[in-house]
């Protein structure tokens, strides 16, 4: 393992261990996400065809809106003292970005996986489209993780963590659209390749932007 990937792994491992012990991220987002998924069926009533049609969009909307909380929490996990420490230890800022984005993506995948059965039970009795959702989960989780980590670094550089949702939500709309269209495409038999490609390209662009901007953003934070 090269120095950068070894350091990234250490950052991710530290963040995941912290979450495992504190439960701050998943203990907050999962109950609220589940509650949000329940609101629409309560409002619509027992209209199975309608629920099945809006299910994928509802699921991805909840993943996006509450997934932002995961990335916000993760980006605020290191205080100024820890940031200084990591700099003085010679940590490559790109490794920090990769590690934090990786940990966020894993937490988001766990979040998605916990909400998926709830959405399946509430919205759709036919799981055909939902199996394809499983293939999209890692792509969306990685994209949101990368975007949230990048937004966290930008917000820290201007000393305003409240900026994170303002950056993440609009930029994640294409991901939400693509994920929902893949699911819908499977349901109605339409082609999904273009939407999958959009998710892959967005993930790659965010990864490159995050790695290239890691050092300037870190130094601007001071």
């Amino acid at each position: 393992m090269t120095g950068l990937w070894r350091q990234a792994w250490e950052i991710a491992r530290k963040d995941l261990r912290t979450e495992l012990r504190s439960g701050e991220v998943l203990m907050i987002t999962v109950p609220f996400g589940a509650a949000a998924l329940m609101l629409i069926p309560l409002a619509i009533g027992v209209d199975a065809p309608l629920l099945e049609r809006v299910g994928p969009g509802m699921y991805w909307s909840v993943v996006l809106l509450f997934g932002v909380l995961v990335t916000v929490r993760q980006s605020a996990a290191d205080g100024p003292a820890q940031m200084d420490l990591l700099s003085l230890l010679g940590l490559d800022p790109a490794a920090r970005f990769a590690g934090k984005a990786g940990a966020s993506a894993l937490l988001l995948m766990a979040f998605e996986a916990m909400l998926a059965p709830i959405a399946l039970a509430l919205y759709g009795s036919d799981p055909r489209g939902w199996w394809w959702v499983l293939a999209v989960l890692p792509l969306v989780a990685l994209g949101l993780g990368l975007l949230g980590t990048l937004a966290g670094a930008i917000a820290a550089s201007v000393a305003s963590t409240t900026l994170v949702p303002l950056i993440v939500v609009p930029l994640s709309v294409p991901m939400l659209l693509a994920a929902a269209q893949v699911t819908e495409g499977i349901r109605v038999g339409a082609t999904i390749f273009g939407w999958l490609l959009l998710l892959v390209v967005m993930d790659l662009l965010l990864a490159v932007a995050g790695v290239l901007s890691a050092r300037p953003l870190q130094e601007a934070t001071r």
Binding site: G79, P80, A81, D84, L88, L89, R215
Partner: peptide
């Protein structure tokens, strides 16, 4: 940046 690992800082707030 390269010289940072040779510097030890203990600040107000524990890191």
């Amino acid at each position: 940046f390269a010289v940072r690992p040779r510097i030890g800082l203990i600040g107000h707030t524990p890191a």
